[in-house]
Amino acid sequence: MTEMITVRGVTKRYDRITAVADATFTLRKGDILGFLGPNGAGKTTAMKMIIGYLPADAGSIAVAGRDITEDPLKARNAIGYLPENNPLYQDMTVDEYLSFIAAMRGLKDPAAAKKRAMERCAVDAVGHRIIGHLSKGYKQRVGLAQAILHDPEILILDEPANGLDPIQITEIRGLIRDLGREKSVILCSHILSEVEAVASRVVIINQGKIVADDTLENLKERSSGHNIFRIEFLTAKDERTVADALTKIPGVAAVSRVAGDTFRVKTKGERETGNQIFRTAVAQNWDLAQIHLESRSLENTFLSLIEGGNA
């Protein structure tokens, strides 16, 4: 697979604080890479270095095989960037703003590019409106339209769902997934579920250091933690009967009774195991009231990786 972005041993210091320490990771063609870490972990600084906004103190960054210090303009052309907090010219209309970006990018057919980007991000209906008057969801889509205007191979999105309501988040996620089909994407977020919803690979950064770089599947598997399902019945059940039936399911480690009608099941697996528990309940003719995932191994892995760094 071709490497779209190669970051090697990159370090950035602000006065006494090391924002990014010896970071190495790659974005491969076609990947949606989740760049995950708590606030202040160095995500934004890392992205700013990739787009050439901030110079790195050490290490090298290559975009599409070329070092960004050698050919910064080429790197800027290859990347579409949605900065954190989605800064926009609030006084401009959407049309004016995107026309400005198109002109600066020197596009061959700016009108067509603008039309395509606006349709893609569903802002074609608000072209004449002043950006400052738009809702946050629309503003975010204008920011995305700006990022994809020049049809870049790479997209870098820094906290694209920040401050959006659940419906807008779903829309933006759909859009990102859609864009990810043809572009290589880095998605920065401090929320695991955000990354999990769209990303194929995850890089976890904490206090400037990369603490994990793997596929979601591998991260789930390598975690020593368990998923915990909480099962509630309509009536009280005998602990032995339930435990005997459920421990037969592969992946179930332990079953314990919380109350007469409520049980906690420790498992290795997640969705598949949940389904098996449900089937068992049906086969046993139990009066199942509800079953839900109380705590998840991936979340625990994420937390332990981050806490490990803080300890």
Binding site: Y53, L73, Y81, I101, M104
Partner: peptide, 13 residues
């Protein structure tokens, strides 16, 4: 202040 500097400096100019 508004952060548009980041957008501006990500453009090929």
């Amino acid at each position: 202040k508004s952060g548009t500097m980041e957008v501006l400096l990500s453009l090929p100019a």
